[in-house]
Nucleic acid binder design. Structure first.
Lengths: 228, 228
DNA sequence: TCGCAGTGTGGCACCCAGTACCCCATATTT
DNA sequence: AAATATGGGGTACTGGGTGCCACACTGCGA
């Protein structure tokens, strides 16, 4: 137990490892910094590094576990939402917000991830977990639909792709501009094409038909359009 | 140069490494078989293993490099196809056919990949390369569309998800049934929702209108529907 | 026939991530 | 004060991956 702590005890060693890692990655690059180096700078033993992070790559994505847990919780309480696709899009926005909370950190990590193969690989497994969460949620909601499983997988993949497209454009720009707007725009494309718009209604009206009659016709047609 | 060769020389050491690897994986599991073991059984030095495969995981996916190359070539010569989404779906079918060529091998690899984390991770990077190829192709074709980049990414992700859904259903079944049909069904969902169907045509015809007149109306309307 | 490059291979030696095991310090309990 | 849980440190080991060098073979020109 050393004399100098940065303040809080308990959660600090973890964050100390993260900042030490990113310092060293900036100084010597990812491969140039060993786990032993990181542990030394963080003031802990090498062995302790692996108590906090299962692999060296994991230290670069310290906040994804929590976000995934929040997403799963969010989806669990969304079992009754009338528009599952929109709800899944909202769940994806949780990830965007996590990135938006630390723009500088996110941008640095993005740059690092672009150039280090091991981190790109690890990132894919992280993204995969999000996609799986969305897909299994949609799968439940689509249980009664024909090809529900396929739809669920395809839509989940589309949501993740759209979300990441918007997010990465923002990251490439150096976190200038509005992330939420970029992600919203991308997600809206997915939501629009996959939320069931139903069949178009054709009303045949002879001249002289009152307007309220037309409205009534259209509304009853739309009302009977839902599959439920 | 040993006395016993299996026949062909030159390409054989690579395939020898692959079969040695799968033998040992079946006997001792993935982690139980070291690269040195594989090399010994294949009759080559440990160092030579890494001349043929960059990592231990890569030996489990020996045929994906070639398939990716074929997909890229196929897409390169598809620059004029009127229906890019359908073309991208066809490109994805190349992967399905590669799996269908060796059903037993594919099933065994699938089982192995399910239970070994390292292989699942590696598989994601493989899939990622296919998705990137499809996305960049669609991106070129959608260059003039608004949100073309987003569409490209989303559709590519959807195609990959649909393809893998059909493929994995077949693999889980032990390679019984028709892969092509399963993949076609899944891909058709994607193609249908993303190929521009244009606006529906409404023909107003009074009683007595001859049938050829109706057909003519509809066809001219459809002909002027394309964006080109 | 003799070099001589190019290429594929084996054999080290080495680095480092990740793990099993043991030990120690502190805190809590009895 | 002794015993016990707990969390972290240290050590040694396994195994993937790399750099380097030496060696064999092949084909080429002198």
């Amino acid at each position: 137990m050393s004399e100098e702590h940065d303040g809080l005890e308990g959660e600090t060693t973890r964050t100390a490892l993260v900042s030490a890692a990113f310092e060293l990655f900036a100084e010597r690059g990812y491969d140039g910094a060993t786990v032993a180096d990181i542990a030394v700078r963080a003031g802990v033993g090498r062995r302790s590094f692996f108590r906090y992070f299962p692999t060296k790559e994991a230290v670069a994505f310290p906040d994804h576990e929590g976000t995934l847990a929040r997403m799963v919780a969010y989806l669990r309480e969304s079992a009754q939402d009338p528009d599952p696709v929109a709800r899944a899009c909202d769940a994806a926005r949780l990830v965007m917000r996590m990135y938006a909370q630390n723009p500088e950190f996110s941008v640095r990590r993005y740059a690092l991830t672009r150039e280090v193969t091991a981190l790109r690989t690890y990132e894919k497994t992280v993204v995969w977990r999000y996609e799986r969460a969305l897909a299994s949620y949609l799968d439940q909601r689509f249980a009664t639909l024909p090809d529900g499983g396929i739809r669920a997988g395809v839509i989940a993949a589309g949501i993740v792709a759209a979300h990441n497209h918007g997010l990465r454009a923002w990251l490439r720009s150096g976190a200038h501009g509005d992330v939420a707007a970029a992600v919203d725009r991308a997600l809206e494309l997915v939501r629009r094409t996959w939320t069931d718009r139903g069949d178009p209604v054709v009303v045949i009206a002879r001249p002289g038909t009152p307007a309220w009659r037309l409205v009534q016709e259209i509304e009853t047609a739309h009302a009977s359009d839902g599959r439920a």
